[in-house]
Computed example of a mutant assay.
Amino acid sequence: MGTIKRIVLAGGGTGGHIYPALALLDRIKERYPDVEYLYVGTQKGLESQLVPKRGIPFKSVEIQGLKRSLSLENIKAAWLMLSSTQKAKAILREFKPDIVVGTGGYVCAPVLLAASRLGIPTLIHEQNSVAGITNKFLARHVDIIATCFQEVATDFKNNETKIRYTGNPRGQEVILTPKDDLIIQKQFELNPTLPTVLVFGGSRGAPGINQATIQAIDFMKDKPYQLILATGQGHYQTVMDQLKQDLGELPSNCRVVAYIENMPAIFRQIQLVVCRSGATTLTELTALGLPSILIPSPYVTNNHQEHNALALVNHHAAKMIKEDQLDGKNLFNAIDQVLTNPNQLQQMAENAKALGITNSSDLIISAIESIIK
């Protein structure tokens, strides 16, 4: 087993690719306090903001994805791939890492390809149940493919021997969040002893989910449970104006906020979640054993959120409402049916927990140690 002395992490574009890398790095730093590390991303991606804020050395390459139709942009993308691979080689030669880990996004293509050509051990991490185009491309070049859903193995044909089912490092991170039994009361002035459902549509919110929840709230008066809706910063005032127009006054068992910064801490005191089915969110839900009603985003590549959701639905850990079937009545009925059935709620929680991997970072570290020269 090798020792991790220097590591390069690459991943970008969205938080779903960045947060697992940061969670893994935090665990590596605990295990190897003297480790040196470098993050490679793009200047356009969210990583250019998040990574330097953590005090992590950051370097960038320029890359873009291919268009589905023939265009001059694809010629530019091919040129950027070649030039960024050369730049990545220079970065890696200078830093001399023991391992290069890619957690998704276009930036992984040149960085992991450069590492492979330089003979540096490599690992890619696929968070979704449907593999991204970059990870499919890299599969034959890398040493290990770490996955979060067993279903994704079919996307890596001819590379099955490289697959390690590790889960998502975010899961191991979230279970370490301290529990506060009174956080619902302190943060939202709600009853900490009542079952609570949390509804949100991602960090930016989702208009469809917000609209259905506005309609559902009208059915929730005098129900023996309570609801919190996080609208997203850009949608908050619109939602509040419509609630005032439609209901006049918000029911005493409902709260509406723009954004929740300490989501993992809130998760620990919630009984049911209504949300999208992005990979990082599902990792958190299964790690904590949280039942959910999933509303997959229809605006993602390869419809991967629906596939993610089905991985939980098929194990009776969640229910799913497709966007085109989402309205206030359907949403209310789904929430009401689960929260007024304690046995079903408990079974869903147990099933969700059974799908969670709570030592994901340690599993990935073990995989890394096994291939370090």
Rank of each mutant, 00 (worst) to 15 (best):
T166E: 06
K186Q: 14
E160F: 07
E173G: 00
N168M: 07
L176C: 04
N158L: 12
G171S: 13
I184D: 00
E173L: 15
T196E: 04
Q172D: 13
I175L: 08
T161G: 00
K186L: 07
I144A: 03
K179A: 06
E173C: 00
I163Q: 07
K157L: 12
F149K: 01
P178K: 13
P169D: 08
T196G: 06
E151G: 00
L182P: 00
L194R: 13
R164E: 09
K162E: 01
E173I: 03
F188I: 08
I144V: 15
Y165L: 12
L176V: 01
Q185L: 11
I183V: 15
N191V: 04
E173N: 07
T147D: 06
R170L: 15
K179L: 13
T177F: 10
R164N: 02
G167M: 08
R170V: 15
T154Y: 08
I175Q: 04
E160I: 12
T154F: 04
I175Y: 06
L190F: 07
L194H: 10
E189S: 15
I184E: 01
P178Y: 10
N159H: 14
Q150T: 13
L194Y: 12
E160A: 12
V152I: 14
F149H: 04
K186H: 14
L182T: 12
K162L: 03
D155P: 04
K179P: 00
Q187C: 05
V174C: 06
P192H: 03
R170I: 15
F156V: 04
